[in-house]
Design a protein around this nucleic acid. Structure first.
Lengths: 177, 177
DNA sequence: ACACCATGCTTCGAATTCGAAGCACTTCGG
DNA sequence: CCGAAGTGCTTCGAATTCGAAGCATGGTGT
């Protein structure tokens, strides 16, 4: 262990890009969250779910696809989709080809809510995020971040988590906090 | 009722920049969170707090400064600082000039933990975030995101309560290491 | 000096989050 | 065809989160 001699430190631009990325996304998320709450009584995740579904060709996705799309835990998604279903904004149905799968579909009401919150959402984005940027900056940002996103998607073994059976279960769960 | 005529829709680059920003920061945060958990038994927020304190000239900050710095609720910060204090990584003391203020200071042990997790932290950043980017991309990203961050900071995003006191805002990206 | 509001932090309650475990079904190997 | 392993989702428990309310101190006006 501890073969970590000491990775070369990050330079100013690298650190700056990282910290600014985190802070900008945090602030943006908070602002957007507030707007969504006000206008449509939606959490950010719920909006993401609806937006993803609304964007799908037939308005539906499988649970796992959704979870990956919004970078969320499976259980958390179950919870939120449950809320959305109770509110009548999405519908759940057993997947056609795979009986253990669940297909989530956006309802008319879901589309209405989406349509209602979208304008304000865009306003917030413009005011907080896009306003101070030049056309070229936005293009550049989109290009670079897309490269990073594609890279990240390909790196982490998202669902490559080997599942241990109880027979060989080991208590490597680091004795709690 | 509202003046929402119908905001001009966002174009492809604008949407791309926004979605990619959100997804990249989410994925990055998840990955970093896992690394921190493994190596130092820290949550992301706790790391941010320690890093901010470690970056401060005298290793200490007021609660409110910290909360703003990490984009966090006051109550949430109280909770996390409480945990860090219990773990012996920070110390709380009444503020010198202001008796209602609380000054949080990083301890030696806190610095040690910080030093222990930092290398791995940087590794993750390199592998997931910086790896696919050219030098110019990183510079560009840092520049553009910094512009956005400064812009967002200047807008009243939180409560419309301007608490203009002698609170000096310092950059997180300062002395470092 | 005293009332009175602003500010700094903590406490409180409710909602959300995640990972682990559990259940249901599908696929693979013999 | 049967059993084992893999995959998809939900349930469960514990930890974290936020906003609102509460407490204590500072600052201001008269």
């Amino acid at each position: 262990m501890t073969e970590e001699a000491s990775p070369p430190p990050l330079d100013s631009a690298e650190l700056g890009a990282y910290f600014a990325l985190i802070e900008v996304s945090s602030l943006l998320r908070h602002a957007v969250e507030q707007q969504l709450r006000d206008v449509g009584d939606l959490s950010y995740v719920q909006f993401q779910i609806l937006a993803t579904l609304g964007d799908a060709a037939d308005g539906s996705r499988r649970m796992t696809e959704l979870a990956d799309g919004v970078v969320y835990s499976r259980s958390g998604l179950t919870y939120q989709v449950g809320l959305l279903e109770k509110a009548g904004l999405v519908a759940r149905s057993p997947s056609a080809e795979d009986d253990r799968g669940v297909t989530v579909t956006i309802t008319e009401m879901g589309r209405e809510v989406l349509a209602r919150v979208f304008p304000g959402h865009i306003d917030v984005l413009r005011q907080l995020f896009l306003e101070p940027l030049a056309r070229a900056d936005i293009d550049s940002l989109a290009r670079v971040l897309t490269v990073v996103r594609d890279h990240m998607r390909s790196i982490p073994p998202r669902s490559a988590k080997p599942r241990q059976k109880s027979a060989v279960r080991r208590s490597i769960t680091g004795g709690g906090a």
